[in-house]
Design a protein around this nucleic acid. Structure first.
Lengths: 219, 219, 219, 219
DNA sequence: GATGAATGAGCGTTCATTCAT
DNA sequence: TATGAATGAACGCTCATTCAT
């Protein structure tokens, strides 16, 4: 609701406008706007959130929004970029903590960290990815995450740790499976995250049989 | 003017003049409307499609839409119901074609039919499911499909065909994996559906080890 | 809600239409329609009541409404006419029960009967009269009622029972006062109708001083 | 484009192009809008007036209306508030011009000012009050006016100037009578306002007999 | 840098009325 | 007599965006 809707306009004796918000570093303003938008996007969805609400929560005027973002969808994209970077980095950190040749460990770490990160941020995750078509091959976030996983699967295969005749298919099964199963975990609140992640890793590792096992389609 | 009619001279407010399209069986009209809506929802998304466009494509007046659907979202729900029934039925048919105790066959059939059905209808699939939150445990379509798969996994486990210490987790991995991997197949157009589905089934069956294998966490 | 909105259309297996309503005497149909409309107009107001609701409550089809009334506002007018006739008749009966020269009695009877009738039917009264501008000199109902009262006032004056230098003003004061005060009685539910009507009549009679009293403006 | 602006190449959805009317003081715009609405509400009724017509007459865009009023009914309420304040104030001024103990004078002043004010603004009056149910005890405007009159009647009674065994009933008779009779004056255009108001006051004062007169029901 | 008044195309929805059957 | 599918103009309202200050 704008400040000068009748009720107000008629009752309040015209006072000198306090002009509260002083000029702040652009960085700070940007962050305030993004925080306000993220909270609202999470609460009520991207479509249902209006620019008016964002600026109201951020405590700035409408025009200020357009100083920092050329359009509403730019805000969403900025949020997406920020989120993806954080998500990728958390996986990278977990994987890097394992020995360079400990491929089982690296894969387990990737899965466990994925579950943990996703369980924590699934609302943001959903918000960010619902706006891309599932099939969008150019979705840079999905591609970056998938590439990370693929590097592990192919690394282990080259090192002879497991067989991966179709590494991309394995990566997709793990990637999609991790998110689908974690959705269910969250929705059912049936157990703690850590043991769930362990079991999930066990299951996923089964997808990568020891080298020398009969190839797919041979059975 | 009938003899009984109560009359008074008065200025008549704006009158309606229905003329163009003749009455058709309700079934036909309904189908025309649903077809128009489905096509548009697919082309440009549900939000971006207006009721005006739907009726224009269906060749009827706006009021006719509201004669058959009480609101735009009712149309989406009708489309969802119809799609889910068809999808479920096609899986059921494929599974039922296998012997009642041929659990490997049944699971392969479920996976293969899922890939095939989804590869054909992924656009409708996406359209329908994007409107539910991923975590919506009450999404009846997802639940029905998952239950179908779970019955097979538990049936095979009881028959001693495979071990399934966590049947729901296995079901979720397969369910999500099938859709995730098929998305990639469709997007990359890298190979034919049938061999892809075969390989996918091989991979998924690996998630269900022979009975007596070491349980998760034991390795 | 129409019978063939999707939910129904998809679930109910097409049955032979019972075609319940047999042809009825026009009189009966008309009365059913008017009763349905009156009830709805009272419940939710004239504007807020739709023709669809009227026919639904009357148990007939939309088209039937237009067999009996050429437009929605004709229905309101028919209801008005019916109500006014009843109201006038009830006053006339009460007044006629007094001796032809008992002018005090006649006026009291008119006032008492007005209060009683209005207290019983104020909802219909409001519904009917809100649709005329207060100033509508051509409102036949108001004119008929006022004329009835005026006849009493002038009759008493000619008979030398009271002075009425401005009979129309007196009539207006009584007419408006009776309705205004009864509104308050109804809204406050503060006392029984009969004693209230008595006191009201006492007050109103004071407006008609004995003959020979100083005329207005002389004081 | 500022340096801080977050940019991405994207198809811009339908853009707005505000151009025509320049910014004016909110007070002025508000007044223009209210004047346009009042005129139209008077001309064709509240229901029959559309927001489109209001903005067209005010010479602004539709959105501007909603910048100042959150809904059409807010406009009506603002008009009501403004009108009631003016009406009450004009009565108060007239009454205050009489000596504090001149109760006959105060009551005459109230009646005379009511007639004058109502004769001038009856169209607005009707417009404003038609939107409240007659019986609405919580109608703040009616209550405020009635309370003003009641204070005079009770003041005179306490001062021994007249008897008022039922002050509220007397107030209601006067209040309703003044409006009802003035309606008739206006509709008939039969005489000047001032003498009519005099005669009306004479009549109304008769409702308040000298102290010691027989109480109601005693006659 | 920051503001906020102003914009207007476009939305989903309503409902009195018509008329072929 | 009775039906009900079909109509379409019109409604109140939204909101991303612009730009003079």
């Amino acid at each position: 609701m704008t400040a000068n809707r009748v009720e107000t306009a008629m009752d309040a004796p015209a006072a000198a406008r306090p002009k509260a918000t002083r000029t702040k570093p652009a960085e700070v303003r940007l962050e305030e706007l993004m925080a306000a938008a993220e909270a609202l996007f999470l609460e009520k969805g991207v479509e249902a959130t209006t620019v008016s609400e964002i600026v109201e929560r951020a405590g700035v005027a409408k025009g200020t929004f357009y100083h920092y973002f050329s359009a509403k969808h730019e805000m969403l994209e900025a949020l997406e970029r920020r989120y993806t970077q954080q998500f990728l980095a958390s996986l990278e950190t977990a994987v890097s903590a394992c020995g360079a040749q400990d491929w089982h460990g690296r894969l387990r770490a990737w899965i466990t960290a994925s579950v943990a990160a996703y369980a924590q941020t699934y609302r943001t995750h959903d918000m960010v990815y619902t706006n891309h078509h599932h099939l969008d091959r150019d979705n840079p976030a999905r591609n970056a995450i998938l590439a990370q996983l693929l590097r592990i699967i192919e690394g282990g295969a080259q090192a002879g740790v497991w067989a991966a005749p179709r590494p991309r298919m394995a990566a997709l099964l793990i990637y999609a499976g991790v998110h689908g199963a974690t959705d269910d975990l969250i929705a059912s609140r049936a157990e703690a995250v850590a043991p769930f992640a362990q079991a999930l890793a066990d299951n996923c590792l089964r997808l990568l049989p020891p080298p020398g096992a009969p190839a797919d389609g041979a059975a």
